[in-house]
Write a protein that binds this DNA or RNA. Sequence first.
DNA 1: TCTGGGGTCCTAGGACCC
DNA 2: TCTGGGGTCCTAGGACCC
Length: 418
Amino acid sequence: MPGRGATILHADLDAFYASVEQLLDPRLRGRPIAVGGGPRGGVVLAASYEAKRYGVQGGMGGSRAARLCPDLVFVRGHFGEYQALADAVMAILQDVTPVVERISIDEAFLDVSGATHLFGPPEVIGRRIRERVREEVGLPISVGAAGTKHLAKIASQVAKPDGLVVVPPGTEREFLDPLPVSLVWGVGPVTQERLARLGIRTIGDLARTPGDAVAHAVGHAVGHKLLAMAQDADRRRIVTSHRAGSVSAQSAMPARQPEPAQVRAVLAHLADRVARRLRDKGRAGRTVTVRVRFAGMRSVTRSRTLPQPVATTLTLTEVAEHLVRSALDDVPGTEVTLLAIGVSNLVDQRVIQLELDLEPDDPWRPGSASGAARRAVDGSLDRIRTRFGKDVAGYLPALLGGARAVPDEFRELAEHEL
DNA sequence: TCTGGGGTCCTAGGACCC
DNA sequence: TCTGGGGTCCTAGGACCC
């Protein structure tokens, strides 16, 4: 049971991508840098602490970042290096305890309640983790320790950059109450504004507000969660393995009128990436969702739940094309800036493989190639790519007449299983 | 010169069933 | 002639996280 002692740790690498760049190139150390983007556009994927001081943040447009921080140095990013370095950090955490829950490439929860008899109290463990990551990998990492996951995560945010914060049992309220409500997990700009209208600015304000009022402002589920967290009633356990509930891929592009042939080319490429990842995981999904974003950032989704799960590139392409057409018909004459395909409602492929073989005709398009034939095509392509490399065969990465928004290595990093 | 890519969870209305 | 209440699935949109 969490709650006895500050035995939940949250370890979070500081400005991860930017710190790696400063590790790889000593000339960048101590300087404001942005990974990704440029002074004339693109998106900043990460900013060093020196840049954050000027208000530069990940997700921000490059031109805005350059205005905020005139000395900002833009670097392209060594996306191929990030995974291995983050994995090395996770291995250090695994040395402390097997009870590690990785929640993104660069952060994880640990339950050290079974490790204190070996390594000492949580504070000592947290310090040791930070020393080892600094010495063996060369990166700064912040650690928060508390009785619950939520509080440990807040503690690590407060500890940043490059610090350690322990919240001893019994001191939770005095720690939490003065902190801004935006530190609560799940409070973004919209929720923050809604809470502000109720006069709620700190976590203490939130904890003291009646549940009905909070629920009315932000919705039932969110309200309940927020109050539980603000009142430190979080009881979530460490989960050491997760299974993805959906698989998706998207591609941004310069605004343009959608030409059917190009739309199809992009969708074939996206469907191939999604379907191949599903097959690699031994999974397939019944619900196909597409998203079309238009100039001006308005976006529309269309989804369809099929009688049978799909993991076949061709079938996924056809379903997606149909859905995108219906979305484009609803918003005619508008320039498109992004296409996305997602598959959810996932099931194990091994089970459904048998079902599909009993019903070889693709229910989506009777009379087209049989399910067995489609899977045979995917199977050969998968084998060729496994043997000779990803790029030797497949569906061309449909450039749509513009430079790729992000390097391929960034996509690979984002696709990578944690 | 606007704003990447991969995810999770929630809401709300409608269809359908018992 | 009027018409309950609960559960589940599906679709579309939105907030949020890293």
